[in-house]
Computed example of a mutant assay.
Amino acid sequence: MLIAAVLLIGVATAVAFVAMRNRSPEQAAAPTVAVPDATTAAALQANEALAARALVPEAVGQPLQVYPAGALHVVGQERFAVGLVDPESGPIEAGTVDLLFFKLVETTGTLTETLAAPFLPYGIREAHAEDHDEDAGEITGIYVARPRFDAPGNWGVVARVTMPDGSMRAGQRAFAVEAENLLPGPGDAAISSQTLTASEPEEIAKICTADPVDNMHALSLDEAVENGKPTVVLFATPALCASRTCGPSLEATQELQRRYGKDANFIHVEIYPGADPERPAAAVAEWDLPSEPWLFLIDSEGKVVERFEGGIGLTELDPAVRALIR
């Protein structure tokens, strides 16, 4: 079974947090917050807001829950997306968000970047959905930034939120950064996987869990990367999606196909053809996918231009696809 795209990672070590602000030599040293040993989940939960309180001392209310929308983070500049939830009132999808990244080395956490993170809706929505089900805790989009990770290991992020009423909220999350991985990234050659194809709805239904089925199964991925056109390929399983974002991601990709289908190949690779969660498609292993969904933009020469893990939408994808087909 694939790892869920929303991966909650904790740092099971004792750490201290150092906030590296711009200070003159006359100013006091950066504050340090000691975090007791967090070898148990309960201890980690009890101390999960210390970095947030150090970096956003004016924050009010309970610490926000910060949910990374991806399972993979690698050294270099990476797309980093999070969902934010107030434990009392539900998803936070209004206000201005900055993401503050810090690197954990032994017992010290050092702030490396502070980046604005705009809200990007899932699927074909152009903005926050006013009719979403807040009672069910439904998240309709993510906050996205592109930090640069200069070393592998344990990292953390603090979400600083300025609410519409001017109040401040904050939350934090620890995560891991890998030195490298086998999954194709920007500049790498796309893997020429032979994927299942079908053209008629009744045949597509045998290899696609979407209902109704989509029409992005006519061309195999290996043929697409060699036919001289750019390719947009989505790995997703709408009916069996652990992250619950495959459906909206498929909707966005279908809309992009309607807009740009004459200029690029559009392919949906069903992760579980036959709707069998114990038998993923061969391409999933060939691409070394740790989660779902994933979308890759591939240029006309068969090189990966960009990759997106987790939920995606038109607001983020449309400009990227337009740049791909220029």
Rank of each mutant, 00 (worst) to 15 (best):
R169N: 02
E134W: 11
R146G: 11
R148S: 14
E113C: 12
P121D: 05
F149K: 02
N181P: 08
A145S: 13
A170P: 01
P186G: 10
N181F: 11
N181H: 13
D165Q: 06
A179N: 08
R160L: 06
T110I: 10
K103F: 12
P152H: 06
G141L: 04
Y122S: 00
N181W: 15
V105N: 12
V158K: 04
G171H: 04
V158P: 09
R173D: 09
H128A: 15
H132M: 01
I139T: 12
A170R: 01
Q172Y: 06
V105D: 15
Y143S: 04
G141E: 04
R173N: 08
D133M: 01
L120G: 01
G185M: 08
H128I: 15
P147I: 06
H128R: 15
P147N: 07
P164W: 04
S167L: 06
V177F: 08
E106S: 15
G185Q: 08
E106Q: 15
W155E: 03
D150W: 09
L115A: 05
G153W: 03
V157E: 09
E134R: 15
D133C: 03
T110W: 13
R125H: 13
G153A: 07
F102D: 03
G156M: 02
L104T: 09
G137H: 06
L120A: 11
A174K: 13
A151Y: 00
A159V: 01
G166S: 10
V161G: 01
D165G: 09
A129C: 10
A116H: 12
P118T: 03
Q172S: 13
G187D: 03
V161Y: 02
G109E: 07
G156R: 05
P164R: 02
A179G: 10
V161S: 02
R148Y: 11
G137Q: 08
T140F: 05
G185R: 06
L182D: 15
P147D: 09
A159P: 01
R169E: 03
I139K: 09
F119Q: 02
Y143F: 15
H132N: 11
E106V: 14
Y143N: 03
R125Y: 15
Y143E: 07
V158L: 05
N154G: 08
A136L: 11
I139N: 04
S167C: 03
N181M: 13
R160A: 12
E180N: 14
G153K: 04
R169G: 04
P147F: 11
R169A: 09
D133N: 07
I142K: 13
Q172E: 12
D165T: 10
D133L: 02
F101E: 01
R169V: 05
A136D: 05
A127S: 14
P164Q: 08
M163L: 14
V177W: 11
H128W: 14
E130C: 03
A159G: 00
G141Q: 02
F119R: 05
D165S: 10
P118Y: 07
E134T: 14
A116I: 09
A159R: 00
F102A: 03
F101K: 08
A151P: 00
W155L: 02
T162V: 10
L115C: 07
A151T: 04
F149W: 00
R148L: 13
